[in-house]
Computed example of a mutant assay.
Amino acid sequence: MSTPDDLHLPDSALRGLGTRPFGVYVHVPFCATRCGYCDFNTYTAGELGSGAAPEDWLEGLRRELDLAARRLGTPPAVDTVFVGGGTPSLLGADGLSAVLNAVRQSFGLAADAEVTTESNPESTSPELFAGIRDAGYTRVSLGMQSAAPHVLRVLDRTHTPGRPVAAAAEARAAGFDHVNLDLIYGTPGERTEDLQASLDAVLEAGVDHVSAYALIVEDGTALARRVRKGEIPIPDDDVLAADYELLDAMLEKAGLRWYEVSNWAASEQARCRHNLGYWLGGDWWGAGPGAHSHVGGVRWWNVKHPARYTATLAEGALPVGGQESLTAEDRHLERVMLELRLADGLPLDALDGDGVREARRAAADGLLSTPDLDGGRAVLTDRGRLLADAVVRRLVS
């Protein structure tokens, strides 16, 4: 385990910096309440000690971004910014504007930069959307999860069912062409008609991007404790598969097509470029408590608690909690795992001989579509998407 500020970026990692997509992820660790399924690095006001208020975090963020730009030597202009959390919208328009200004001042933004913030529908307003649009944000991602009140209760979500649709309309009215809604499917007690109602609400909102994730019961969460006590059942794999097929069919019919296993977009322009940078092996600096970074095959992560984060930066050191250099085998595995999830698929020449032979077998099993097995791409079929992790294991075993 590394100690703070022993980040080592060799020349080999910095070589080519700027020729690959470069993004900045900003982690906002604050939440009004904790959702029962969430295991992200977030804190409510009652869980934070001194030195961890939003204004302290913002000052730490500015210091980290300045140190980051110096550590990278000649930092590239930022192609994408993604402000996540936590609940970034709790910062308000002024706070989110200050975050983007910090990125601008330390790195600079590319002329066509994509700038996204996540938002909880309950902490948004027409004024917030207008303010962040004026500040330079180009994309909003809203946490909807479900339109069914009893499903939201199981998830410990606090927003009212109709608020995400209203928030999406407010964002569009403020000038945002790109708005995403997040869904979670497979929550215990969610019926087919509940998922259909959620999808109907998504389509009513007129957004150009949808992310949908199967509920995962993460260790250490309130939801995991309820499952362990037998209060609610663990999500059923067959139900999850049927739910995925339903939402894929409804979104496809409405003109939103999958481009990654859990993401659908109305056009190529609507795809999330920041996430594509992750999936295609780009570089990014993750700023904020617990944020992860990657540059040229070196990966590192920040200390988690906001108070330690700000204290380390106040001493003039980067708040690095640990780092690793990816081996050639690591990078190969990650490339197969991530690119295969994309609708564009994985170039077959990225596989070794055993991998190509296994791709042929997977195609024969109906899991991959490989129109040109002698130089084309391995693309998941509809059935293959349901078994994506198993297909990856076959190709790299």
Rank of each mutant, 00 (worst) to 15 (best):
S2A: 14
T3S: 04
T3D: 00
P4V: 06
D5Q: 00
L9V: 00
L9Q: 00
D11R: 09
S12F: 04
A13H: 00
R20Q: 15
Y25D: 08
A32Y: 13
C35R: 07
C38F: 04
F40S: 13
T44P: 12
E47V: 00
L48R: 11
L48I: 05
S50G: 13
G51I: 01
G51R: 03
A53M: 06
W57C: 12
G60N: 01
R62Y: 11
R62F: 04
R62N: 13
L72G: 04
G73Y: 10
T74L: 12
V78F: 00
L90A: 10
D94Y: 09
L96G: 04
L96T: 01
A98V: 09
A98M: 08
V99I: 12
A102V: 01
V103R: 14
R104S: 05
G108A: 06
A110K: 03
E114M: 05
T116Y: 03
P121I: 03
P121K: 02
P121M: 01
E122F: 02
P126Q: 02
R133V: 00
D134Y: 04
A135M: 05
A135N: 05
G136F: 03
Y137V: 02
T138I: 02
Q145A: 02
A148K: 08
L152I: 10
L152Y: 14
R153Y: 04
V154A: 00
L155M: 04
D156E: 05
T158V: 11
P161E: 12
P164I: 08
A167K: 00
R172Q: 13
H178S: 13
L181M: 10
D182A: 06
P188H: 10
T192M: 09
Q196D: 15
L199F: 08
E204H: 14
H209A: 08
S211F: 07
A212I: 06
A214G: 01
I216Y: 03
T221L: 08
T221F: 09
A222P: 12
L223Y: 09
A224F: 00
R226Y: 05
E231T: 06
P233C: 06
D243V: 02
Y244I: 11
E245I: 05
L246C: 06
L246Q: 02
D248F: 05
K253D: 15
A254I: 01
W258D: 09
Y259Q: 03
A265T: 09
A266Q: 06
E268H: 08
E268A: 14
A270T: 08
H274Y: 08
H274K: 09
N275K: 02
Y278Q: 05
W279Y: 12
G281D: 11
H292W: 04
V295I: 13
W300M: 14
A317V: 07
P319A: 00
P319S: 01
V320G: 15
G321I: 07
L326K: 15
R331M: 11
R331P: 07
H332Q: 13
R341P: 05
A343Y: 05
A350R: 13
G353N: 12
G355N: 10
R357S: 06
A359P: 14
R361K: 14
A362M: 11
L368I: 13
T370C: 12
R377T: 07
R377S: 12
L380H: 01
T381M: 02
D382F: 08
R385V: 02
A390W: 11
R393Q: 14
